[in-house]
Amino acid sequence: MNLDFTIIFKYMPYLMKAAGLTIELAVLGIALGILLGLLAALLKISHTPLRFIANFYIWLIRGTPLLVQLFLIYYGLPQFGVKLSAFASSILGLGINSGGYLAEVFRGGIEAIPVGQTEASLSLGMGKFLAMRRIILPQALRIALPALGNQFIISLKDSSLCSVITMSELLQTSQRFASVTFASTEFYTTAAAFYLIMTTVISVVLRSMEWRLAVENRTRGY
């Protein structure tokens, strides 16, 4: 076995570009996931019939593989006249998927806030939505941050599944070069290293965010 990692350098610009696409997929996917997750969490804790929609969504998404969800969006939806690009399908798939998990993360955060916070808000004349937006959610999101970071890392790695619906992201690009050059180990090791670097950066950024947002570390503002 003779490994020659120098072959990578020639392809580096393409790998960098593909890693950029991976980041793009993960960031846009998690952004959509945060919106969907927040909406589902709020519906779930509302005492309206809409909470059943949220429950159904969470049940469906968590109970089926992301790969199947991606196939259904990219190959299945066109049968109903909805034709999305591979890129849009990928964002939608990653967003819907992470949203299902984040819904429970956000619900846990919201329910961890003492009821006295809501009562104090209401007693000051705030409506329910204002209290949620200004008082409850800022505290709940801080509690949810570690789990949100976790989901971000999962989504970044899950974006590799988008390779099967023709996205030229990091894994698919590596795969293509590996089959052309027969340097499988070199390219897949490089891909793994790229993922590792990206998830490490995310972890570090999140940890510093957590620290900055931690109420315990606040003594004086401004």
Partner: peptide
């Protein structure tokens, strides 16, 4: 309230101005 129920993510001043700004 007995347990104060101050908003922990806001400073003393921010606790006080929150409702006047957003409600009044």
């Amino acid at each position: 309230f007995q347990q104060f129920n101050l908003f922990p993510h806001l400073t003393a001043l921010q606790n006080i101005i929150e409702a006047p700004i957003h409600v009044l």
